[in-house]
């Protein structure tokens, strides 16, 4: 880049026509009136300098500026209430349903929903009923089994006793038990001590 030098003009009011002979302006021009043509070369420094400046400018323009939305930065203190937001291109206010077709559609949807709900409720109730019934049957069966076992043991005991009676000689144990039963609780009591004085 060419360095442009600035000329210091001591007296800027002094011009060719100023009449001051010593001034630079009066010296600059040829006195004889013949002007030599100056070499017309390309101005070396100014053009490329200008181009670079433009490029820089372009670069500066091309630099993309991102908005907050593009960057996906969470918004801070930017909460807008639902009612305040107004979507563009949409009808303002509420959308009413007054024609039969749309009402029928809504009704069909709602009814299908309800039907499904009721159906599922019924199925659930039926399943629960089945489970309860199965549980009841199971407990009944268990109860019966227990009863049967009890009856069996009772029967076996009875048979045993009969057999021993048939033998004629009851064993000592059974005799002792019978004695105890007949005597009752009174017999088990020890005799009271008595004291006699002469």
């Amino acid at each position: 880049m060419g360095v442009s030098r600035t000329k210091t003009v001591k007296n800027k009011h002094a011009s060719n026509k100023s009449g001051i002979s010593g001034s630079k302006a009066s010296k600059s021009g040829p006195v004889d009136g013949i002007v030599k043509s100056r070499k017309k070369g390309p101005p070396p420094s100014s053009k490329p300098g200008k181009g670079k400046g433009l490029a820089a400018l372009m670069n500066k323009k091309k630099k993309k500026t991102y908005t907050a939305e593009e960057l996906g930065i969470p918004k801070l203190n930017m909460i807008t209430p639902v009612g305040v937001e107004k979507p563009k291109g949409k009808k303002k206010g509420k959308v009413f349903v007054d024609d039969r077709e749309s009402m029928n559609t809504i009704l069909a949807l709602v009814q299908a929903d309800k039907e499904g709900e009721i159906e599922s409720k019924m199925i659930k109730a039926r399943q629960m009923e089945e489970i309860r019934e199965a549980r009841r049957v199971e407990t009944e069966k268990k109860e019966q089994e227990r009863k049967a076992r009890l009856d069996e043991t009772k029967e076996s005991l009875r048979k045993k006793r009969k057999r021993t009676k048939a033998d004629g000689a009851p064993d000592a144990d059974e005799a002792a038990v019978r004695d105890a039963m007949t005597a009752g609780s009174k017999a088990a009591k020890p005799k009271k001590k008595r004291v006699a004085f002469a």
């Binding site: 959308v95 009413f96 007054d98 749309s102 009402m103 809504i106 009704l107 709602v110 009814q111 929903d113």
Partner: peptide, 26 residues
């Protein structure tokens, strides 16, 4: 008139008590 949402809410409530004959209402 009712909006779509309101209509849905209303019909859902009515359908709790009524059967398929609810169509006859409209």
């Amino acid at each position: 008139p009712l909006t779509e949402e309101e209509t849905k809410t209303l019909f859902a409530k009515l359908a709790n008590y009524t059967g398929s004959s609810l169509n006859n209402l409209i």
